[in-house]
């Protein structure tokens, strides 16, 4: 049966990392993705904890703070590239198939250019060498994702990560799955109220997304991976729920999506 997954943040304290990871496992999830938002050591610790807990790590979310510098001259661009490469190395070291990578941040991000293309080429080449797939995620722009899919159209190591929430609050007129579904290798499922830029990361069915359509489109792509949620215990929406209750609700929403997919 298709796996159900939940994202796990990266904590400074290993004990906290273990506690959160265990609760996710106890809620019924059997897959996860972890992040690379802190540093290399923290990312590796999160991976070790997840694997010891018995959760399969479907992907690592590569760092994305400062991602716009990938397209700009200067050291900051080289630095973010170096961090992205390190996150690929973490995937390789822990047997994780794929890393989710952003292409830009914000509405006024730099457009595609020669410098950024060269840096992303370097990243993709490194991923190929390491046997790790790069999954580019939809955010506010269509052109850069389309560019990545076209530029690396012959690279099976490059795929698409569909973020259901980003689509709803950033690019309502664009349905990414009919466009890039044949490259789909990863999903970030979450909900929001469909307000422009309101990337609320609510649990599925708590916002405005049409999950029946999402499930139908997902199914139509042939995607075999987990129903992967990208939610946090956000007090704006879930202050009345304990973390355990929140996870139970999250798990139930993932089950419901799987059911909507006819499984």
């Amino acid at each position: 049966m298709r796996e159900l997954g939940m994202c796990i943040g990266s904590f400074e304290n290993e004990e906290k990392q273990r506690e959160i990871t265990s609760l996710i496992k106890q809620a019924g999830f059997n897959a996860c993705f972890t992040g690379y938002e802190r540093d290399d050591a923290a990312a590796r610790m999160a991976c070790e904890v997840a694997q010891k807990t018995g959760l399969r790590i479907d992907s690592i979310h590569a760092p994305f703070d400062g991602i716009n510098h990938m397209w700009l001259p200067g050291e900051e661009g080289d630095e973010i590239l170096s961090r992205l490469i390190k996150s690929i190395d973490v995937c390789a070291d822990y047997g994780i198939d794929q890393a989710v990578v952003h292409l830009s941040s914000g509405w006024n991000s730099p457009q595609v250019n020669d410098l950024g293309t060269a840096r992303y080429d370097q990243l993709v080449n490194h991923a190929i060498k390491k046997g790790v797939k790069v999954a580019f995620e939809n955010l506010r722009k269509l052109a850069n994702v389309a560019y990545a899919m076209e530029r690396y159209s012959n690279n099976s190591e490059v795929g698409f990560c569909w973020d259901s929430g980003h689509e709803l609050c950033y690019t309502k007129q664009v349905e990414f799955l009919p466009i890039f579904g044949d490259r789909l290798c990863c999903v970030h499922l979450h909900d929001n109220l469909g307000i422009l830029s309101g990337d609320q990361h609510m649990l599925p069915f708590d916002g405005k997304r049409d999950w029946q359509r999402a499930a139908t489109l997902l199914k139509s792509t042939g995607y075999q991976g987990p129903i992967m949620l990208e939610n946090g215990h956000d007090p704006r929406f879930y202050s009345d729920l304990s973390y355990e209750q929140f996870l139970e609700r999250a798990y139930n929403s993932a089950v419901k999506i799987r059911q909507l997919m006819g499984e």
Binding site: V112, K141, L142, A143, A146, Y147, E150, I179
Partner: peptide, 12 residues
């Protein structure tokens, strides 16, 4: 045939 270049135009 392509999408990226025309998507670029409407963003740029």
């Amino acid at each position: 045939r392509l999408l990226a270049n025309i998507a670029y135009v409407f963003e740029q």
